[in-house]
Amino acid sequence: MRYGLLVQGAPYSSQASHSALRFATALIARGHQLECVFFYHDGVYNASRLAAPPQDEPHLVDAWRGLNAGHGTQLQVCIAAALRRGLLDERESARHGKTGHSIEPPFELTGLGQLVDLGNQVDRLVTFAP
């Protein structure tokens, strides 16, 4: 089956990201396809390239990157939710006259329209929220 995930919880603040990652791993182990993880609401913080968790906790941002590297899962971040929370890629950072950026590939800033498309493409869209 083709799956998409919608993640709306901030990493380490709630269980949502941890559960979504476990679900993602289980899906792939069962031979399903995970097309895309879409980050919305506080879920956009999962995309922060500057996350530096202590070593005895799972590195959630790296785990998302691993899904992309190992399985080709797209990692899409709602641009409106991200920008107002200070999560900008290089292009948006320059456009807003900021120094530095907090999002980098494989995470990509996209619009909510992509979430609608995803919902229409996949067999199941599963939400993980706090």
Binding site: Y40, G111, L112, G113, L115, V116, D117
Partner: peptide
């Protein structure tokens, strides 16, 4: 999200 979906 509802507005964007409707716009699509």
């Amino acid at each position: 999200a509802a507005l964007v979906a409707a716009a699509f």
